[in-house]
Structure formats: structure tokens, C-alpha cells
Amino acid sequence: MTSPDSAAVVLRVRDLTVRLGQVAVLDHVSFEVRRRDYVGIVGPNGAGKTTLLRAVLGLVPIECGSIELGADPSSGRRLRIGYLPQSFALPLARFPASVREIVETAQPEADASSSAVQAAIETVGLAALEHRPVGMLSGGERQRLLLARALAAEPELLVMDEPTTALDPAFREQFYHLLDEWNTQRGTTMLLVTHDTATIGAHARRLLYLDRTVVFYGTFEEFCASEAMRTQFGAPHQHLICHQHGVGAGFEAGAGP
């Protein structure tokens, strides 16, 4: 019998270890993500953040542990996943595909509906460029293209790897509001790797601090109340994140202003 709580789990990672050669890039990582959660994953360079996402998506072999991606409990069907990589290197400078054609690959097996494709293109502000070859896009436009492709899949879980690095400040803000909207109104579960710790505090509800293993995983209130995190993260950094989230560092859990 499945309890209501366990049914709400979208992603369960247990004791995950991933090695690249002799190096354990991820070492016994365990955490759970529930439906409608918005998890920000932070950590230093080389902490294994990208590897964790790629392991969750089944793109790297795991040495031990398990990863369970929840299906729709009512139908048992596979979870619809949107994937937004950090960037993409065009395999060919003149890759022969238009913006619209790439967004249409959002769900290649199911063929994304034309309305979802059109809506995604308009949402990211690429409507005027929908017939432009992808090789003629700027770095920021390419990032918007990837976002449109991820949204056109109408994902239940959106997995993002430092998606804002190529975006201009105005669209970056718009981008975060868009994620908030999808999370709150459509119930899309968010998993976001970022170095943008100052901004993530204002949007995500949970924080996963990774340094090859899980150093911290919990709500921002718990993070801000944690003396251990103050030592680990540094007081100014912790304060900045907590300030963005509207919680003063050193507050007790759940004691936001």
C-alpha cells in the first residue's frame, strides 16, 4: 500500500555513488524530491552538481545506489521530463534546423502538440525568430531556445543545469518568474543547479548543498537556522541567501519575518 506521502515523491535518490575513473564524483548521495517541490542545488566547482543531474536523467552510469523517478500514480506512465542543459555546442556551425524545428523535438516520441510548441516559443520571446536557423542565434537566444524546448514538453519535472549563465539580466529575472509560475500554477517540480545563490533564495523552496555528498538538504528556514551551515558556507554568504528568501540568518526554523 502506498501512503499519500510516498506517492508524492517524484525523485528518490538512495546511496548514489558515481565514479569517473578512480574518483568518486558523487559519494553516497541520498535525497528525495516531492511533487511541486522547487529545489536549488548549489555547491563549489567540482562538487558533482552536473553529474548528479546527468545521473538522475540516466545519462551517466552509476556505480551503486538507486534512482527512482516517480511515474504518474494514477496511470503508471513515465514522468514527462524537461531538460535544460547549461548550453549547447552546435555540432555544425550551419546546423540545418530552424528554431521551431528544434522546439518540436521536445517530445520526439509523442510529437509535441503544435499549440504547446507555439506557446513555448512565444513564452521565451523567440516568436519573431521561429524560422531562423539555430546557427544564427546568439548565446542568450540559444539558451532561450533550450528553455522553449524544455517547456514545450509540458514537463512534470524540469531539470536545469545553470540555465541563466548566458541570459541578460532582464530576461534572467523573467526566467525566474516563469519558473515560479510553472511551479505554483502548473505544479511542475523544479530541480535547478545554479551558482546564482543570491537569486535562488528568492525562488526555490528547498536547498541542496552538494560537495560530492549531501552537506545540507532542507528548507531555507532550516538552512538559515543552521550553525553548521554558517560555518560551512560562511556567514556573509548564508546571510545573503537567507535575506533573499526573506529569512534572517540565525533565525529558528520556520521563524521567517
Partner: peptide, 9 residues
């Protein structure tokens, strides 16, 4: 275009 994305899809 993107075999990784194709696999994820």
C-alpha cells in the same frame, strides 16, 4: 541535434 536530450525524452 542533441542525443542526450533525445534520451531524456
Amino acid at each position: 541535434f542533441d542525443p542526450d536530450h533525445a534520451r531524456v525524452s
